[in-house]
Each structure stands twice: as C-alpha cells, then as structure tokens.
Amino acid sequence: MSILITPTTKIIVQGITGDFGGRHAKLSLDYGTQIVAGVTPGKGGQFFEHAGHKVPIFNSVADAAKATGATVSVIYVPPPFAGDAILECVDAGLDLAVAITEGIPVKDMIRVKRAMQGSKTRLLGPNCPGVVTPGTGKDSHGGCRIGIAPGYIHKKGHVGVVSRSGTLTYEAVFQLTSKGIGQSTAVGIGGDPVNGTSHLDVIKLFNADPDTHAIILIGEIGGNAEVEAARWIKANCQKPVAGFIAGATAPAGRRMGHAGAIVGGAEDTAAAKIAVFKECGIEVAVTPSDMADALLRAAKAKGVTLS
C-alpha cells in the first residue's frame, strides 16, 4: 500500500488549460497516473489531449467528480483564485485537494482552513510539490504522481518521505533510490505558514501504513510543526526515523524563501529542533547529503532491513 494515493487513484486537474497545469498534467499522464478530468470554468466540453490520452474538461469540480468518479484534485490555478478552487473541492466532497499554487495570501488560507473544519476533504499544501506513490514499472512508471515532482527519481519501496520543500524532497528520494532503497510515498506539505496537512498528520499516516517500514522527516526553521511531530514519534512510532532540519545558517528575522521559514524565537531555530529530534530518538542527518545514510543508521539500530 501507500498513503493518501495509490496508482489507481482518479485525479482531477484544476487549471489544466494553463501552461503550468498543462505541462504537469502531461508529465503525470506519461508517468501512468490516472488523470481523468480537467476543470477550467467556461471550457467545459473541451478535451485536453496528450499522447493518445483524451481528458475531458468540465466547468466545475462537482461536475468532473460526478462524471468520472475522481476523488482527488490537484490545483494549479493562480493565487487570487486558489482559495476558491480549494473550497470547490470541499464542496464536491473529494477526499484530497493538493494545492501546488505558490503565493496565496495568508488571509485567504486562514479563511479556507476555517471553512474546511469538519469537512471530509484533506488539503495538502499550498505551495507544495505534491505527492508521489511510485509504481512498479521502469523509473517507477505506473505510479501516482500528483504535482510537480520528477517521477523518474523514485523507486517503489517502503520508505515514507515528508518535507516542506520540493527540491529537498527530491534530494532525499534521489539519495534513497541511488542506494537501491524504494519509497512507499513521498509527500511535500508545502512551505507556507498556513497549510492543510502538517508533518504530524503525515507521520501518523506513515505509522499506520503497514507498507511503510521507515520514515525520513525533513523540516526547516520556523514554527513548531517538526517538534510536534518528533514528540509524537517518541511516544507512538516504532519505525526507524531519520530527520534533517534546513536553515542552521539562516539569520533571525529573515524569511528564507518559504513564507514559513523564518526564525522568530528561540524554539524555532535549527539547533533547537535538532536537539528535540535527538531527544526523541530520531537519527539526525548531519548534512543534507547524509539523509539516506542517516535512515540506514536508524534502520540498523532497530534491526530493520530496507529495500
């Protein structure tokens, strides 16, 4: 198994007729992912065509879900309309909305998150690379790729990866694959201060997934999400976990690219988070090049064999 998505998950693309959404819809189709519908208001009835695929476009998420049975949507629409696009997924009763869009106003996300309370829809992101469950084919083809991650760097296996950052997730996945170690699912939760799914939410899913045997938890400066996840791991998770925190050299008070990556107080520095990781039995990667090796150390200590 895997978490959040499987290779048979049916997916809607909101913003499929835009450059960005269209490009990544094609890459997902090439990867073997079940992109079953596109949504662009006003373009319902048209088709998105690529390499023999003919994906129907609908005016609304509700229409698309009803016609195709899709349970997940990925959002590439521009920031001013992205909050609305997320709420449309909630209204359609989808299981998961993955918001790739970068630059959504914080106030919009505060309102969206409040409006989602009590709904069945999970939000991943925004400002995230998405989620990949690798497949069994060549270069992990046949898997489910939602978002903007490169599919081919993955390998089907049993390590769960969770991170805010896209390229740092790719770095970890690539290190694992290069060592012949596959992944169950790689999840990017996004770099914004208000997001739908936290590190802890993903860790709980990995912990409950019998197909995930070990976890890489990648964090960064700012906030306390990594600390919250680490403390839960200490109390509840028997699986080997390796961790890395980016931003040890970041000066206080400056945002490092991600709106959430800012040192505000003594608790959200890299040093403080690394100390908590150690205290919670998480094997800390000393450099970003050390993530896969750190996981191997953690696995060895618990007698877990990874492949």
């Binding site: 903007i148 991170s163 805010r164 950052s165 896209g166 390229t167 740092l168 997730t169 770095e171 770099g191 990648i218 960064e220 400066i221 890395f244 980016a246 931003g247 040890a248 050299t249 970041a250 400056r254 490092m256 690219g257 991600h258 990556a261 890299a270 000393v286 450099t287 970003p288 090049s289």
Partner: peptide
C-alpha cells in the same frame, strides 16, 4: 546559486558544516 528554498537553505548549511561561510541565500526557483 540553488533551485528551491529548502535546498538553498541546506546548501548554506553544508558550506558552513565544512568550514566555509555562505555569502547569500539565492533560490532561482524551479
């Protein structure tokens, strides 16, 4: 000069880890 904010931060960190000092954070995007 790095693509991605997380990787850019980590690149600064690894320079410092090996005894150097980073002159900047620079994310050129995806």
């Amino acid at each position: 000069l790095v693509n991605g904010a997380g990787l850019a931060m980590s690149t600064m960190d690894i320079i410092q880890h090996f005894g150097g000092t980073p002159a900047n954070f620079l994310d050129v995007g995806g």
